[in-house]
Nucleic acid binder design. Structure first.
Lengths: 229, 229
DNA sequence: CGAGCGATTGAAAAGACTCAACCACCGTGG
DNA sequence: CCACGGTGGTTGAGTCTTTTCAATCGCTCG
C-alpha cells in the first residue's frame, strides 16, 4: 500500500531505481540526488505538469503510473506514453528550452519524487554515464515514436487496439489492465464508442475478458495476430 | 547546379553549415571534421541507409533533400521526416545502440557528406556545445513527433493534407513542392487516390495550383484554416 | 434517494479505402 | 519519325470502417 504522507523516500531503498536511468549511480551520486529531491504523494488523476507550462524539473516515479498526453484541436486527449515505476518523466523538456508540449497526469495513486531543473542538469553535466543513458533513451524513444506514427497512419483501429492491449498487458504486470474506456480510446486513438464495440468483438472471439472496467488478456498470440505483426 | 564529381566539399565553405548542428564549430573543430569526413554525390532516389541495417555513421546534407521513412505491415512507406540542406541525418542511431528503424533515400540529386561513427562520437564526447545541441535537437524532435502522432490519430486526411502542404511549402523554399503523388500520400498518411481527389478539391477551392506534378500554394492562410489551427 | 458520470447500444451518415480502368507523358528502339 | 511499353497520375464505383449523435443503463457518491 502507498504511503500517504510526504515523507522522504530514500533512493537507496527505491526498488524502482534498478530499472531507471539512475541505475548506474554510485553511492555518492545517490547521496547527491537524495539531498536534491523532494518526494510527494499524488492522488489518482492529479496532474504533474500541463502543456504550455514552463518545465521546473523532472519527476521520478517511485510507485504508480502516469499518462503523458497531448491534445488535438477539439481538446481530445491523445495518450503518447504510459510511464510506470522507475521512469523519469519530463526530462525531454529539460533540454529543449521550450515549454511542455504535453501534459502528465497520474492514473492511480502514486509516489513521485521531484528533482529541480538546475540540480538535474548539474547531475547530467557531471555524470557521463547518466548523460549517455539519457541520449540513448531519447534516441530509442524517437525510434519508437516513428513506429507509433506509422501504426497510427496505416493500421486500422481494430489492429491498433489489439496491439495496444498487448502493450498495456506488459505495462500492467501482474495485474489487469485498468483504464477508463475513454483513456483506452485516447491511447488507441479512436472514439470511445468504437473502442467499446471492438472490445465486445474481442470478447466474442475470446481474446479478452472484462471484469467491470478491468481487462484480462486471454490470448496474447491471438491479439498479436490481429495486430498484424 | 550540383557537382557530379566526388570531390571534397570543404565544411568551411558549406553554406548549409550555418543552420546545422555544427554551426557553433570553431576553426579547429571544422578542420577535424574536414579530415574525418568523405563527400559523395547521390542521384535522386538513391538510399543512404536501410531499415534494420547497422548504423555506420552520420550523413550531412550539403545540398539536396532526403526522405526518412518507415514501413507498415504491407510494406507501405510512411514518411516521418523530410531532411533538407544543413541537416544531419541518422545521428539518433549513433546513440541508440540499435539498427536503423527507418530508411533514408534522396528525393533529388544531392551532395552528402559522411562522418564515420567513431569520429562522430569522438566529436560529441569532446565538444559540449555539439552535445548540448544534439540533446536539444533530440528533445525537440521528440516533442514534434508527439504532435505528429496526435495529428495522425485525430485529424482527417483533408486536414492533414492541408497541414502537410504548409509544412512542405516551408521545406521547398523558393521553389514549388515537388514530390511524387505517392510520396506525398505517404507523407500525409493516406492512399494515393484519396490524396489526388483532395488535391483536386483544394484546386477547386483555389487554395493551390498544380504545374504538372509540382504544387504551388496560392492561399496559405486558407490551408491553415482547413488544417484547423 | 437523486444526480451525474462512465459504460453501452443503436442507427445513420460520413470518410477513406480498394479495385479496376483509363489517361498522359516520356524515353526507347525499330 | 512513329509505334511501343512503362510508369505515374487520374477517375469512377462500390464497400467497409469509423464516426457522430442520441438514448439508455448502471453504478457510485454525496
Amino acid at each position: 500500500m502507498l504511503d500517504k504522507s510526504y515523507r522522504h523516500i530514500g533512493c537507496e531503498n527505491c526498488k524502482s531505481r534498478n530499472n531507471s536511468l539512475f541505475a548506474s549511480f554510485c553511492d555518492s551520486d545517490v547521496d547527491i540526488m537524495n539531498s536534491a529531491k523532494t518526494c510527494a504523494f499524488y492522488k489518482k488523476n492529479q496532474p504533474l505538469f500541463l502543456e504550455r507550462s514552463a518545465p521546473r524539473g523532472v519527476y521520478c516515479i517511485n510507485e504508480g503510473k502516469v499518462k503523458i498526453f497531448g491534445r488535438g484541436e477539439e481538446g481530445k486527449e491523445q495518450i503518447i506514453h504510459l510511464a510506470v515505476a522507475g521512469e523519469i518523466v519530463g526530462f525531454r523538456a529539460m533540454f529543449s528550452g521550450e515549454p511542455y508540449t504535453v501534459s502528465a497526469t497520474t492514473l492511480e495513486d502514486s509516489n513521485i519524487c521531484f528533482i529541480n531543473k538546475a540540480d538535474f542538469l548539474d547531475m547530467v553535466d557531471t555524470n557521463p554515464s547518466l548523460r549517455n543513458g539519457i541520449m540513448k533513451e531519447l534516441s530509442i524513444e524517437l525510434a519508437e515514436r516513428a513506429t507509433f506514427v506509422t501504426n497510427m497512419a496505416q493500421k486500422s483501429v481494430r489492429e491498433r487496439l489489439a496491439s495496444s492491449l498487448v502493450i498495456l498487458n506488459d505495462i500492467y504486470t501482474n495485474e489487469l489492465i485498468n483504464l477508463s474506456r475513454e483513456d483506452l480510446a485516447n491511447f488507441v486513438g479512436t472514439a470511445t464508442e468504437t473502442l467499446i464495440r471492438l472490445l465486445k468483438d474481442f470478447k466474442d472471439e475470446e481474446l479478452i475478458k472484462t471484469h467491470a472496467r478491468k481487462i484480462e488478456i486471454l490470448n496474447k498470440d491471438g491479439l498479436l495476430k490481429v495486430a498484424g505483426g
